[in-house]
Design a protein around this nucleic acid. Structure first.
Lengths: 162, 162
DNA sequence: CTTGTAACTATGATTATCATAGTTACTATC
DNA sequence: GATAGTAACTATGATAATCATAGTTACAAG
């Protein structure tokens, strides 16, 4: 593409978010980070993105302050990527995307239930696709939920990791 | 780009959303639609996107069922684009993006307050960057909020429209 | 009959993306 | 100590998406 118009200086908050989030690769990498995948190769394998793209996006995300690169061993040098507080705060966006897809992006009976089930840790309620726990009424935040992938999703991820 | 891997058949809900939402142009067009901009030229002008991009994305969004093209007059033929129920249900995603940006994407004192203030219509409370009304505790949905752009944002939009 | 407007489509240059292969810096095994 | 293996990348070339600019269609108004 030609240099697309830079949105990082617009006063519109959606525009500023779109500068980072309006990118498939960034969203997929964020998803994996939220799922606890922290290593470069694991992210590349699960997302299906090429290593240069993963590399470029992780650098961008590091520059934006949503991830930080952390050496977890010295010899040989190995790194992992962790979400910062700014990164973890993107949970609402990813969770809203998940909720929308669960409601609209599957054919009836395609899986026979949600692709991913989430349970509120605090009270044990299945939260469905709510932003507020239907059991106890608490707003849902990062770390509050325990996810259980459907059989279909689990099989797909296993195939990619192989 | 070469044909990027299609995510519409993945079982991961974030992946399916990312197929549509992982695109700057789509996000900007959605933002404008949520703000009530329904005409092609108005969207193109405000987003700063070229007409071919706006055209291509609106066609895609129509195909995905998030907008519908509606003739508002016959002679001369004029159309507008409206969010469908599936499209309106993306409100949570856009609102989460806005909240994140308000918290993280501005320098201290860059505007001197939020770029966009939202008030809960039902109770009149300024919702800040919450997903649940801090006044009455209700979850916030599409149509529940009344937005007031900051002076900076209003000036920027006026400049683009001119 | 020229100007204006809405809603686009066409063209060409630029640049991001993907697939594939290669690199670096080690450890482990034979 | 030479070969194989692994993590985390970088390099290269083909392809395709994007932007800027200009042009088109269908009509109304002056």
């Amino acid at each position: 593409m030609p240099k697309r118009t830079d949105l990082s200086d617009t006063f519109c908050p959606v525009g500023r978010s779109a500068e980072l989030l309006g990118d498939r690769a960034v969203l997929l990498i964020l998803r994996d980070l939220f799922f606890g995948r922290r290593r470069f190769e694991a992210i590349a394998a699960n997302t299906g993105l090429g290593p240069q793209l993963v590399s470029a996006r992780l650098k961008l995300m590091e520059k934006q302050g949503v991830v930080e690169r952390h050496a977890y061993q010295e010899r040989p040098p190995r790194h992992e990527y962790r979400l910062t507080a700014k990164g973890k705060d993107l949970f609402d966006v990813l969770y809203a995307m998940r909720n929308w897809a669960e409601r609209w992006a599957y054919e009836d009976g395609e899986i026979g239930g949600p692709a991913m089930r989430y349970v509120h840790r605090a009270c044990g309620t299945d939260v469905g696709t709510s932003t507020v726990c239907p059991g106890c009424g608490e707003p849902l935040r990062y770390g509050d939920l325990k996810g259980e992938p459907s059989e279909a999703l689990r099989a797909e991820q296993a195939a990619r990791a192989g």
